[in-house]
């Protein structure tokens, strides 16, 4: 791992990254870690941990930047929906609002650690979607794709965080929240589309719509830990595939999410 190359690349993205991270650790942490407001103190404490990690494992910062990119996308996606008075059917408003709140919290948490990024989004997905925030069925389909992608994305980065146990744990804590979201939006999708085959978990490589098939490719994997589990406990291939979620690499995730990031 070439730590200087990564720092250099990070500086290209965010020119003041190093200075700001030092600032975060020395000043804000000292001032705020003793705060009784845990929701404020925790991101700053995390920022300090990330700053320490900066010297030990620049890869971790790289992962967090990647995570923040996805969280920005999700947070913006739900913010528009929640702010659109006629998009979300009444019965789902609570669920969607909570998911949006969590994504905004993830953004704030990660921003405190690695700084802000300025991203613009293309909700047409490169011209392929015309009603992302005006048709609830389209919205909930995209929600499924984004959440299921998020789960695979965090999972795919876990190995890169092994040298930074505290950061790894935070990533895992976000990862399982994304999975909770995924199950909920998938079940809403199933109700809205009268789809008995769409469940809270992913069956085989089944995708809600063909456009987002790449999100689900590989989810039909039956080999875990080098062992083909076909027939395990007499269960079906479908059940075995459901029992394990799969990873996506950073490149695969960016290929999927890229058209949203304009």
């Amino acid at each position: 791992m070439d730590i200087f190359k990564i720092i250099d690349e990070l500086q290209k993205i965010d020119g003041d990254a190093v200075g700001r991270l030092e600032h975060a650790s020395r000043r804000h942490f000292m001032n705020r870690v003793g705060s009784k407001i845990a929701s404020v103190a925790a991101p700053m404490a995390f920022a300090t941990i990330v700053n320490k990690a900066y010297a030990q494992s620049a890869a971790a910062v790289d992962v967090l930047k990647f995570a923040l990119t996805l969280e920005y996308l999700e947070a913006a996606f739900y913010k528009i929906a929640v702010d659109s008075p006629s998009l979300i059917p009444a019965q789902y408003k609570s669920s969607i609002a909570l998911i949006g709140k969590h994504e905004a919290q993830h953004v704030a948490y990660l921003e405190a650690a690695v700084g802000k990024m300025d991203l613009k989004f293309d909700w047409t997905y490169g011209g392929k979607l015309t009603d992302t925030h005006t048709n609830f069925k389209t919205f909930i389909t995209v929600a499924c794709a984004l959440e299921d992608t998020g789960v695979r994305a965090y999972k795919g980065q876990a190995g890169a965080l092994m040298k930074d146990p505290t950061i790894l744990q935070v990533a895992l804590q976000v990862h399982s929240v994304e999975a909770r979201h995924a199950a909920q939006v998938r079940r809403i999708f199933a109700i809205e589309n009268n789809s008995a085959v769409t469940k809270g978990w992913i069956t085989g490589n089944q995708s809600p719509i063909a456009l987002v098939q790449a999100v689900y490719n590989g989810e039909d994997n039956l080999t875990q830990g080098g062992v083909n589990l076909k027939g395990l406990a007499g269960k079906s291939d479908a059940a075995i595939s459901e029992a394990f979620d799969e990873t996506l690499s950073k490149e695969q995730v960016l290929a999927i999410a890229g058209p949203f990031i304009g």
Binding site: S176, A179, H181, G200
Partner: peptide, 14 residues
């Protein structure tokens, strides 16, 4: 562990 925990989280959600 990551492949399994997200399925547990899906269960918890449902």
């Amino acid at each position: 562990a990551g492949k399994i925990v997200s399925v547990e989280a899906r269960h918890a959600s449902v």
